[in-house]
Design a protein around this nucleic acid. Structure first.
Lengths: 240, 240
DNA sequence: CGCACGGTTGAGGACATTCAAAAAACGTGG
DNA sequence: CCACGTTTTTTGAATGTCCTCAACCGTGCG
């Protein structure tokens, strides 16, 4: 699956710069605003595999994850599913869903989160330009990330997708300089996120391990051995 | 950014429910609001293959397409590219790009469009709740569509992707009940949109033709022979 | 201890890509 | 209007990647 136009190749591609940079900025703003709503927030939690909200449900709340990991997925009748994204502490779910949730949110690991009634949330926004622009920024970022992932799935091969996934998980979990990455989700979830089969995910990890780019002490921990190389692989078939 | 406003049509949807329904509602609101800005709008036009805005450019304007077709694409150095979406008359580009465009916009066919200075646009929004909620809806829709496309690229095979593409183009170009679909973009663009090679797109079209689902009188015209079947194919390996 | 479950690895096959070439469409200039 | 060169589209054959099916391994738990 590569596709693409042109198969020319020239590009030294130093092997670094993300070719599809999406600013991965923490959205401080929104969190602050939400803190002000604490009085009306519900504190909830869920254990592994529980459904927090199902696609099609009335979007009565906006959720902010305080701990754990959740997946945003789309299920179809015949068992196939696609996982749009994984959310971690500080991430927000439901902001873009005006009336009904477009995706299901399910707990990957034990989760605690705050649920803000949408009505209250909206009311607050009406008098607050700053909050609104934060929401705007949040939605824009969500679009940019969806497009980045679209590029990943459309243009990268299995090994590159897995590498890109690891890089992204590193960023999302703030483990920018660390070497030890915790992957709370099972392989099947990674597969459904990347548009691969579970076996292919395993094989891609094995390949990266064989190249000494990563180590896999156990199934849920990845040790980054060569982050530069990992990023290079993640950005496409430049030199691989 | 992408995406757009989209098109109405509640569509009888004969065939079966789209497994990933995205409300394809026309955003009347935005167009009306924009009309009020006519005084400040620039009227531009471009011919085939011209770049209207490049990724990374300062997002000084919000564009509304009045005629023609443009593609929103992401290019990488080695020649690969991904086309996030195609825009038609009435669609909006640049709304989600606060400072810089995340995607390039290029004319697929001769294009005329209106460019609204972002500053003016933003100022209008500050005093207008209705406009703001239209923008919000626009961004939400863009996210939903990106997710739908993500599902398509992650879970469907070549024939299904091409079928889904045809269905979507039918909807976008308001040709809900018609049978004659005009495809202004070259095969390579379709391939880069669907994450396939150009040859595979051709073969998928040939397969649909062989099944008597479509006819292809010439490369840029598709005649729908069995829309119900097309929708069934587009929604995945359920009963095909 | 034995079972269940998630993960890993192997073999074979399906599907999409690549390379190659022919056919059709397009534009230009005579 | 036609001839010509260029570009786009289509088809064919071979290759490669990823998927499917299946067995195996390791860990955790009753």
């Amino acid at each position: 699956m590569k596709s693409n136009t042109a198969r020319l190749h020239a590009v030294p591609d130093t092997g670094n710069s993300d070719t599809f940079a999406v600013p991965e900025i923490r959205q401080e703003g929104l969190s602050e605003h939400l803190a002000r709503l604490n009085g009306t927030a519900l504190r909830l939690h869920f254990h592994r595999s529980e459904t927090i909200a199902a696609a099609g449900d009335t979007a009565a709340y906006v959720y902010v994850l305080s701990s754990g990991c959740i997946r945003l997925s789309h299920h179809v009748a015949d068992g196939r599913r696609h996982i749009a994204d994984f959310l971690f502490s500080g991430d927000i779910f439901g902001l873009g869903d005006a009336s009904f949730f477009a995706l299901s949110a399910e707990a990957v690991s034990p989760v605690t989160l705050a649920a803000y009634p949408r009505a209250v949330f909206d009311r607050l926004g009406e008098g607050n330009n700053h909050l609104r622009s934060d929401i705007f920024a949040h939605l824009s970022l969500a679009i940019a990330q969806a497009h980045r992932h679209l590029f990943l799935v459309s243009c990268l091969n299995a090994r590159e997708r897995v590498a890109a996934f690891l890089v992204r998980m590193m960023e999302k979990t703030q483990l920018v300089l660390g070497v030890r990455l915790d992957l709370p989700m099972p392989r099947q979830d990674i597969a459904d996120h990347l548009g691969l089969s579970i076996e292919t995910v395993c094989r891609a990890l094995a390949a990266l391990k064989a190249e000494a780019v990563i180590e896999v002490p156990n199934a849920h921990v990845i040790v980054m051995r060569d982050i530069g190389m990992l990023r290079a692989i993640a950005s496409g078939p430049s030199q691989s």
